[in-house]
């Protein structure tokens, strides 16, 4: 299969373009999307698809998400770039009630496609209101699918899957990976199925369950640890809803040790649920408690040096893995 090296945001944009070519019901709306988008993923969309399908709006996040729900209910396939994951809270009713529950409340088993793009995480000084990892909200409120790609190829493949998915998807693009580059399939039928994890590194001694910005850091930590004789398996969840429990439990039941790593704040973050379920479901396969490495339970600092100290570093991941291995 043919592939091409490209950036994370460009790959996400390519997924969008390919799907817009095959499906006239898809439209894109957000702040600045017609002028190329804040992060470049929408570059060229307006000139190819016209301003009817690539629509700029004012600062109105509740409207944007509510509009997505309304348009999706009548069968269109809106893609809304919300600018920042933090803004999920501004549009909370529209996302976690309307998009998530409309069909459920009305007793309707019908398709409803909508993709809400939430750029999440730190990017070097965006400050406490533009750097949050809000993906756990989508796990807590039922009715949505939740994805977090960690590679350019997954960004493309998950975007395409989201646009073929008959349920609303919260698509968390990782701000810190915006400029990451990698091989991306150019096959227009290439998709990454929602709900399927990847195992970018296989290992025998312990399992690092992670996703998003912490995938490259966990892989780097695993490389270091390999030199010390600790053989880590790294699972990139890619989707948080549905979460690929089969993959996680199969791995941990083999390695007997697990840790969860994410940029999101540690307390009540996705890792809390993942750790709890591992010990609930395969307690007797475990040689050690499930450990967690997460962001500090403080607002993210505006100062980029302090920001960097607030989220898990490669060293912190490696240290925790050593501790886990020693138990």
């Amino acid at each position: 299969m043919s592939s091409e090296v490209m950036g994370y945001n460009a790959a996400m944009g390519l997924g969008l373009v390919e799907e817009m070519r095959r499906d006239a019901e898809i439209f894109v709306l957000g702040q600045g999307v017609a002028t190329g988008g804040w992060f470049g993923a929408e570059k060229g969309l307006a000139s190819e698809f016209g301003l009817d399908r690539v629509i700029d709006c004012g600062i109105s996040e509740a409207f944007e998400a509510g509009l997505a729900a309304g348009a999706a209910i009548v069968g269109m396939k809106p893609v809304i770039n919300m600018g920042f994951g933090d803004f999920a809270l501004i549009a909370g009713d529209e996302i976690y009630h309307k998009l998530a529950k409309w069909r459920y409340m009305h007793g309707l088993d019908v398709p409803m496609t909508a993709v809400i793009i939430f750029p999440i995480g730190t990017m070097g000084g965006a400050g406490p209101e533009h750097s949050s990892c809000t993906e756990v909200l989508g796990m807590h409120f039922p009715g949505l699918k939740v994805v977090v790609p960690s590679t350019p190829e997954d960004a493309k493949g998950l975007m395409k899957a989201a646009l073929r998915e008959p349920n609303p998807v919260l698509f968390h693009s990782v701000q810190g990976l915006g400029w990451a580059r990698g091989e991306v399939s150019t096959d227009p039928e290439f998709i990454v199925p929602i709900g399927k994890a990847a195992t970018p590194r296989q290992g025998r001694d312990l399992t690092i369950v992670t996703y998003g910005s912490m995938v490259p850091r966990s892989l780097e930590a695993a490389d270091t640890l390999a030199g010390e004789g600790i053989d880590c398996e790294v699972i990139d969840l890619r989707s948080l809803v549905p979460l690929d429990w089969d993959c996680v439990l199969e791995s941990v039941s083999r390695t007997n040790r697990a840790m969860v790593v994410h940029e999101a704040a540690k307390t009540a973050g996705p890792g809390a649920e993942i750790a709890a379920q591992i010990q609930e479901r395969i307690f007797f396969d475990l040689e050690a408690p499930v450990l967690r490495v997460g962001g500090k339970d403080f607002p993210l600092p505006q100062h980029s040096d302090l920001e960097a100290m607030s989220i898990p570093s490669v060293d912190a991941i490696a240290d925790t893995a050593r501790r886990l291995f020693a138990i």
């Binding site: 409207f63 729900a69 309304g70 309307k98």
Partner: peptide, 28 residues
Amino acid sequence: YSIGVMGEGATLGSVYPLAGGSALASRI
């Protein structure tokens, strides 16, 4: 949906953007 009864949102004020969404769909 077949007779245009699209539903009710019990968080009042949710009808505005929902109707905005269906209206935009009609424009497209």
